[in-house]
Amino acid sequence: MKNIQVGIIGGAGYTAGELIRLLINHPEVEINFVYSTSNAGNKISSVHQDLLGDLEMKFTDTVNPKVDVLFLCLGHGNSVKFLSANTFSENTKVIDLGNDFRLESDKVFQGNTFVYGLPELQRDAVKKANYIANPGCFATAIQLALLPLAENGMLGSDVHVNAVTGSTGAGTSLSDTSHFPWRDNNFSYYKPFTHQHLGEINQSVKQLQNSFGSEILFMPNRGNFSRGIFATVYTNFDGSLEEAKALFKTFYKDAKFTFVSDEVLHLKQVVNTNKCLIHLHKHNNKLLVTSIIDNLLKGASGQAIQNMNLMFGLEETTGLQLKATYF
């Protein structure tokens, strides 16, 4: 039996499918159960068909309360409901991939404190945590574009963000904007200036630069591809491009998955990886930061495993050394 026993709640969605794909190849993990009330008794590979031949396990509607770590892959607002209705061992660590515990106002639940799990921001806190609020996908890409500036007190004006996500960002449930005939060869924005990830983005920026009082103006877009986030962020910057590069490279010098590139980026460089790649461009007094991630990996399941590795004292990259789907 491997060392870490894992339970997954909400096992039929995209993030759970990615978790399972990664965890069955993780050298220190054994999946104990995958919980899905709508699929109980069915083979996991009947839903996550890429796992055919890799996993014979079935979904269950019961839980083992003594697992070492519990991943919550539930719709936003449902993690509180699930944890209120189910009791786990005091030794069970919890990693929530929803947004229920990300904000300071929501981080304490039943006497337990959830730590915001962006390793590049607070790796040491993650290592000591028993409860993790995994960051949102847009929030991850945008924060990693801004945190080096915030740490150095250089966010003195409004920040403009335009970011495009793939269709998997909408989840598996069908909606008017997720049907193939609508999404294919199409492009649109949604939730302009009001996206739910803005709360955690502002929270992290102010954690490093408490004086930040300007706006983060965020325009989220739907792209006609399956996975990935391509974010462009620009704001005023008085220094040179070389100074900006030095600042970012210093901030991420110990990061295992975030890298600053001197070359212009494209999305295929990160799809199917846990990487965030960043590129900087200076135009007059504006600094443009490009940040790209796979929304299902660094933006969700990969980052959750990165946090698990830190919590259990494993090498941060364990089980996450993935090749991009480049061609």
Rank of each mutant, 00 (worst) to 15 (best):
L297E: 02
Q306F: 10
L74R: 07
S45L: 05
Q122N: 15
A163H: 05
N130K: 08
F88N: 03
I293P: 01
F101S: 04
H266D: 15
P192H: 08
L174E: 10
K43V: 07
Y234A: 07
H48I: 03
D184Y: 15
I142Y: 00
A40L: 07
L22S: 02
L208H: 08
L297T: 00
A129Y: 04
F187H: 11
V233S: 04
L297P: 02
F71N: 00
N224D: 12
E215D: 15
T258L: 03
L55D: 04
G299L: 07
T87P: 03
K66S: 13
H281M: 13
H195Q: 13
K286H: 09
G156Q: 12
A141Y: 01
F180A: 13
A324M: 10
E316N: 07
I20L: 02
G302S: 05
A141H: 01
K93Q: 09
Q209V: 09
R21L: 13
N202W: 06
T273S: 03
P65H: 07
A244L: 10
G10P: 04
I278S: 00
T15H: 07
G41V: 08
F257M: 13
S240C: 11
A255D: 09
N186G: 14
G53F: 10
Q321A: 09
L287V: 08
A324Q: 11
K66P: 03
S173E: 12
L296Q: 02
K2T: 09
F180G: 06
G11S: 02
C276W: 01
N78G: 11
G13I: 01
L72M: 13
Y35Q: 02
L247I: 06
K93I: 13
F101H: 05
L174F: 08
P65Y: 05
N64M: 07
S178A: 13
T15C: 10
T232C: 10
G10H: 00
T258K: 00
N32A: 14
L277V: 12
V47D: 00
L280V: 09
D176Y: 10
S291H: 06
F212W: 05
P220K: 02
D294I: 03
G223M: 03
S105Q: 15
D54C: 15
T258I: 10
F82G: 01
G7T: 01
A170L: 14
F225Y: 14
L288M: 11
A125K: 11
F109R: 06
N25A: 13
V270F: 11
L320N: 03
Q207F: 12
D176Q: 14
L121H: 08
A231E: 05
G213E: 14
N78D: 13
L19T: 00
Y234H: 15
M219K: 11
I9F: 01
F114G: 04
L22H: 02
N42M: 15
V289N: 01
N32P: 07
E215M: 14
N99Y: 09
G169D: 02
L72I: 07
V67T: 04
A16M: 03
E30P: 05
N295E: 13
V271K: 06
K191F: 14
